[in-house]
Lab assay of single mutants.
Amino acid sequence: NARWTTEEQLLAVQAIRKYGRDFQAISDVIGNKSVVQVKNFFVNYRRRFNIDEVLQEWEAEHGK
């Protein structure tokens, strides 16, 4: 399903906090979204969920 429920959106943001840009890991956490759908989520929801800021926090924690 290409549509993202609110629950899936929140799950994705939590997974980004945990896995950074590991699209496969994020896809696995959500369970019903492909890697391509996760990559599209990054692009389409970047502003709404401040994904750049979430990634900066992840990179700071993981030394990337």
Rank of each mutant, 00 (worst) to 15 (best):
F41V: 01
K39G: 04
V29E: 13
N44I: 15
Q37L: 02
V36C: 11
N40P: 01
N1G: 10
Q9S: 11
I51S: 05
D52L: 04
R3M: 14
L11Y: 06
F49Q: 10
Q9M: 14
Q56I: 09
V36I: 11
I30N: 03
E61K: 09
A60T: 09
F42W: 04
N50S: 14
W4D: 00
H62M: 10
V13N: 04
N44R: 14
E8V: 00
F42I: 11
R17E: 05
N44E: 15
R3W: 05
S27W: 04
V36H: 11
K18Y: 03
L55Q: 06
N1C: 06
R3S: 10
R46C: 03
K39C: 02
A15Q: 04
A15R: 02
R3A: 10
Q37R: 01
V54T: 06
A60D: 08
L55A: 05
V43K: 11
Q9L: 13
G31K: 11
F41R: 02
A12I: 05
R21W: 06
N40G: 08
N32C: 05
A60H: 11
K39Q: 12
V29C: 09
T5L: 03
E53I: 12
D52C: 06
N40S: 13
Y19W: 07
Q24I: 10
E61N: 14
Y19D: 05
T5P: 05
Q56W: 04
G20N: 01
Y19A: 02
F49S: 05
F41G: 02
K39F: 00
V36N: 15
G20L: 03
Q9G: 14
L10T: 07
G31L: 03
A12R: 00
E53L: 12
F42N: 04
V29N: 05
K33T: 00
R46S: 13
V36Q: 15
Q24S: 11
I16H: 02
W4G: 03
K39P: 04
F42H: 05
V38L: 01
Q24G: 06
E8K: 11
R17W: 01
N40W: 10
N1L: 10
S27C: 05
Y19I: 01
G20Q: 00
A15G: 07
Q14V: 08
N1I: 14
A60L: 11
N32D: 03
G31I: 01
D28N: 11
D28C: 10
L55H: 01
